[in-house]
Design a binder for these strands. Structure first.
Lengths: 213, 213, 213, 213
DNA sequence: AATGAATGAGAATTCATTCAT
DNA sequence: CATGAATGAATTCTCATTCAT
């Protein structure tokens, strides 16, 4: 029985190894320009082996998205779990969580919408698809809760909380994306932290009940 | 020379025709899934002809990005040109301009970072690349000026004006992107205008000097 | 308009060229062991070109089957068309036709049932499939008519005419197949004509009303 | 040595198990569409194990052909062994034997000529090849003997007895094959027995000395 | 200038076979 | 003996690009 477990663990290890290799390659070249052979080489495996762990290239990509989403929900859960936290604490915790999530896998996060192509979606197993959707919804629900709390406390303006969560999320991905773009043109400076800080500073301020009418 | 000119005009006309066809195809299928033959068919030309007007597929795509950027700078110029406008007027004009830009070509706008892939960039002629960069900088400079004006008037907080412009831009693209994503999952509701309105409402409020410290 | 026609003719010419090359390769190696590259090489074309004329490998194969069937029906039509022929004449003409058909393309005829694999069938366009079926039925109907005539004249036993046609056809393909097998083992002797002569001699005799009860 | 024997027996047992699994898979999917893994799964073994019993996929297939041929020769031997039987008895016994053989393994019987591909033959060990040939010849010799007897008795026409045996065999395989084809197009009706009955009825009648000249 | 047939360099994927455990 | 993970060659098919007409 120990054997069974060890095998299982090794299998998972290898799966992770492939995913990390894939992440590096996708990050460097983008999805379409990355070949399965590139990824195999990066993982120091043969191309055929990849298919023992992932049904096809899209499934491999989807699993990376899943990985970010899983990390994100866990991280958010951890940050926001204490139901008794005040909005002031929650909004700070939320920010910290977003930084971590960005560090975890910025690129996949951005390109997650590769999955949107309906061609791609069709090929994915329903399980994966369902899980991706479930995790997305869950993450968004948690972000929404933060702003609901703030509204409940009467410390922020009464927008539709889901809309605010959307905006929060848009701002985050927009900033990450834009940072990548700027990095391409001008690789040396790396200022996402500052940009995000300022972004959310303005956002939080704009929401604040004490802000102008 | 009248003949020369007419020829030139006709050439430009055809170029535009190809670009519009390409835009339609890219919009419908995405960059990688669009073939040169698709575009040729849409333009009612033969594949070979496309190469008389564009060096290759990437150049065609880049020219579309250029087109959006050109529209964007022209539109912003027009909106913001009057140096004597107040921040209050400018910020309203800026918003109007962004809506127009979105309407002009949302999809290319979103996918502009397709060009980021360094593989792609390598193949582009320096001219095009330089022009893209120049236009981007110009557009950003104009947006920056709006917020500089606000700071000069003392009606908004003194962040770094370029950072605020970045954030403005991030928020815009983030919202557009996120809207596309939601559309995929839940195609019926289409609320970008409202989301953008709320986004910029909060942003402007957050910048407002009367907002909380 | 002459140009249009010439193009059409050349296209058809090339199509035929590919089909003949494919026939040679399939004959030498069998369907599964023949690669599209083999066929391209044999046709002195590049692999990509094959796909301009045939949707995929199966379609190419199917078109070869179609070709035999077309030849077969035309040849049978020609042999049996004169409605006033006696059974004696018809049965001789039928034999001659079968020899010609064998000469035209023995191997494809045998492997035609490659198409039976339901996997294969699914991928074929309905048009081709329908045509294959239609031609098969037509050929069999003509063969049936020969034996019906014989029964009408009262010169052969009253079996079910369709069954007799089936048997005639089975005997033919069985003989061709068996001949191929023997050729593999013992390549020098080539006796299909004689075997077929004897086969049909016995068959015709067995049908003859004057044969034993 | 009892151990030795038991081991030998067990080994043979497992070999048979693999062959039966392979037969089921080949029958369901055809040779090319069956993977070694399919067969391993059906045999409840791992792919590697198959190679402990069969040199490669072709050898496994060949061993199945051998199995049919072995059954065929044994069955024919049993049916025809009594040297004193009359042609009338022999021809009836032959028919019965053929039905049994068909029941034993119709599909492999039909596809036996898969082995003909010279590519395939090259890979087979000489032993197997020789045995296949020897069994084929033996079976054919026995069939030939039946018709020789008939000619000796003066009850059937004096064709070349080997040729008649060939025809008998061709008719059998042709009918089986054609039946399969018809089954594909029109799966419900299944009439091989009747077709074979009629076929051989006509054949025997055609051979009969009392038939027309 | 325009055409569009032809090219051929890949890309994803499969699967018979091997070999360390 | 048995396993089954890993291999990597081979195959089908696509599509950006070229070039003779």
């Amino acid at each position: 029985m120990g054997i069974q477990e060890r095998k299982e663990r090794e299998r998972e290890r290898r799966r992770q190894g492939i995913m990390l290799a894939a992440k590096r390659v996708f990050t460097a070249k983008g999805y379409e320009n990355s070949t399965m052979e590139d990824i195999a080489k990066e993982a120091e495996l043969s191309p055929g082996t990849l298919y023992l762990y992932f049904k096809n290239k899209d499934a491999l990509y989807a699993s990376l998205s899943l990985r970010v989403l899983q990390y994100m929900t866990v991280r958010l859960e951890h940050a926001l779990e204490d139901g008794s936290k005040s909005y002031a604490d929650l909004k700070a915790a939320l920010l910290e969580a977003m930084y971590d999530i960005y560090d975890f896998d910025a690129v996949i996060l951005n390109n997650m919408f590769h999955l949107q192509s309906s061609e791609t979606l069709k090929e994915l197993s329903d399980d994966i698809l369902e899980e991706i959707n479930a995790l997305s919804r869950k993450a968004l629900r948690m972000i929404t809760a933060v702003f609901s709390t703030g509204m409940g406390e009467g410390v922020i303006h009464k927008y539709h909380p889901t809309a605010v969560a959307d905006i929060f999320w848009s701002m985050f991905t927009g900033a990450v994306l834009w940072e990548e773009t700027k990095k391409m043109i001008n690789p040396e400076r790396y200022t996402l932290r500052e940009t995000l800080d300022t972004s959310f500073d303005i956002l939080y301020r704009g929401l604040d009940i004490r802000s102008a009418p």
